[in-house]
Design a protein around this nucleic acid. Structure first.
Length: 422
RNA sequence: GGAGAAAUGGCAGAGUGGUCGAAUGCGGCAGUCUUGAAAACUGUUGUGCGGCAACGUACCGGGGGUUCGAAUCCCUCUUUCUCCGCCA
């Protein structure tokens, strides 16, 4: 959520930068500013009423003490209208505040100035390519066939138990999945991230804190009975650890990593690219989250990208890094890099990680601040990235490493799988 | 799920209708003393909103109510603890 103070201070910049998302927020910002002015006026009136009310109350107290009952009762009568006024203003105030918030909830984050305009992922800028495409055997198969052939993942079984998009991993498939999770967690831990195992269901406050609500209501599975949401990513519970927290400047950087299953309804996104493991309702992911000093967050974003590149290098997968254009940028992000792995048999680039700097957008909702010295608390920056999302990694490992009579396991995973071939 | 107790500042802990944003202790910060440190002493030390500031205002788990006036009384919700029941 944008800060009103920022809108007031650099309205033109905000409008200009949001144009790369193909939206014009001029009217909304004007509305926010005029409501904010009204808010200040209303509070001033209310505060004045309250000031008078408070001093009358004190007087009445003193009169009662000194036995001046009659005079006290006279003053009491005077408080009635003041009280009415104050409570009316209080109601106005909260209506105005709600109206401001309602608008702010509809405005996405202001993109970083290097974000280019564009409509869709077609317009993203490829900023790095690792090269080294695999050469496949003549009879190469896409992973959904390999999975069946070697009995690694069973989709039909998942349909029987739950529904489409909830696969059952079996045997070496399950083991490979677990190996990847452990590998990713170990790599992150070695890079200084603290591992956490967060809850998989979150409350409404947490959903608002990281910006999934109200923007993506409907994309999350919702337990109406207890009003809890199944997490679409570990970002939600992990970042919300720091909701309503004031850190010391010396606490930075704060680095957390967590493995969780992720649950996404994927409403309306059923298309051609959903075969096999490409798009699921439940999938596993290791997520890295950092909290940073505003001056350091972009350096940290680079560091996180480098970390994920390192993972893909070690897995010996061909990949590229895309800098998202305005039209493809997530609602809450100021700058995002997507990591895409080439899955050779289906000849597709699959997004396996999305690494973003949210600047203060989440922190403002979370009330996540830091203090340096005796200065007033300032909003911190939040960042996160997948390191990594499992199913598509699995898909590309299977496809790229097939030999015609088996599948080679990347060397780095062998200590985790206990086998080097499927 | 049933019965009872509780929720106060970074922490501990007082406060049961007015002068309480809240005693006291610990911790933090600044200073005195010291070659330096410790100890001792002195001062200072929550957050939001409005305001250049002075200051005003709100906040004692959340929401609502009673009252001229609520940390204090009432209702409700949440959470924690104890006992009972159930259970991985």
């Amino acid at each position: 959520m944008l800060e009103v103070s920022r809108i007031r201070e650099e309205k033109e910049v905000v409008i200009e930068r949001l144009k790369v998302r193909n939206i014009d927020v001029t009217e909304k910002l004007e509305e926010v500013l005029s409501l904010d002015t009204k808010r200040k006026e209303t509070q001033l009136i209310m505060d004045n009423d309250l000031t008078e009310l408070n001093s009358l109350s004190k007087e009445i107290g003193n009169l009662f003490k000194s036995g001046n009952i009659e005079e006290a009762n006279q003053l009491k009568a005077k408080t009635v209208t003041l009280k009415d006024n104050a409570s009316q203003q209080k109601q106005n105030l909260s209506e105005i505040e709600n109206a401001i918030q309602k608008i702010l909830y509809t405005i996405p984050n202001v993109p970083n100035k290097i974000v280019t305009p564009g409509k869709s992922d077609q317009d993203n800028k490829i900023v790095f390519e690792s090269g080294k495409m695999p050469t496949l055997p003549a009879n190469a198969q896409p992973h959904w066939d390999l999975i069946k052939k070697y009995d690694l993942v069973d989709f039909e079984l998942g349909v029987k138990i739950t529904g489409a998009g909830f696969p059952v991993y079996k045997g070496k498939g399950a083991r490979l999945q677990r190996a990847l999770i452990n590998f990713f967690l170990d790599e992150a831990t070695n890079a200084g991230y603290q591992e956490v195992i967060p809850p998989l269901l979150v409350n409404e406050d947490s959903g608002y804190g990281t910006g999934q609500l109200p923007d993506k209501d409907g994309q999350m599975y919702h337990d109406a009975q207890d009003n809890l949401y199944l997490i679409p990513t570990a970002e939600v519970p992990i970042t919300n650890i720091y909701r309503d927290v004031v850190l010391q400047e010396s606490d930075f950087p704060i680095k957390n990593v967590g493995y969780t299953p992720c649950f996404r309804r994927e409403a309306g996104s059923w298309g051609s690219d959903v075969r096999g493991l490409n798009r699921l309702h439940q999938f596993d992911k290791v997520e890295i989250v950092q909290l940073a000093h505003p001056d350091k967050s972009y350096g940290i974003l680079d560091e996180m990208v480098a970390h994920v590149k390192g993972l893909l290098d070690k897995l010996e997968l061909p990949y590229r890094v895309a800098q998202l254009c305005g039209g493809d940028l997530g609602f809450t992000s100021a700058l995002t890099f997507d990591m895409e792995v080439f899955s050779a048999a289906q000849e597709k680039w699959l997004e396996v990680s999305s690494i973003s700097n949210f600047e203060t957008f989440q922190a403002n909702r979370l009330k996540l601040r830091y203090k340096s010295g005796n200065n007033k608390p300032q909003l911190a920056h939040t960042l996160n990235g997948s390191a990594l999302a499992l199913p598509r990694i699995l898909a590309s490992i299977l496809e790229n490493n097939q030999t015609g009579n088996g599948i080679n396991i990347p060397k780095v995973l062998v200590p985790y799988t206990g086998f080097d071939k499927i």
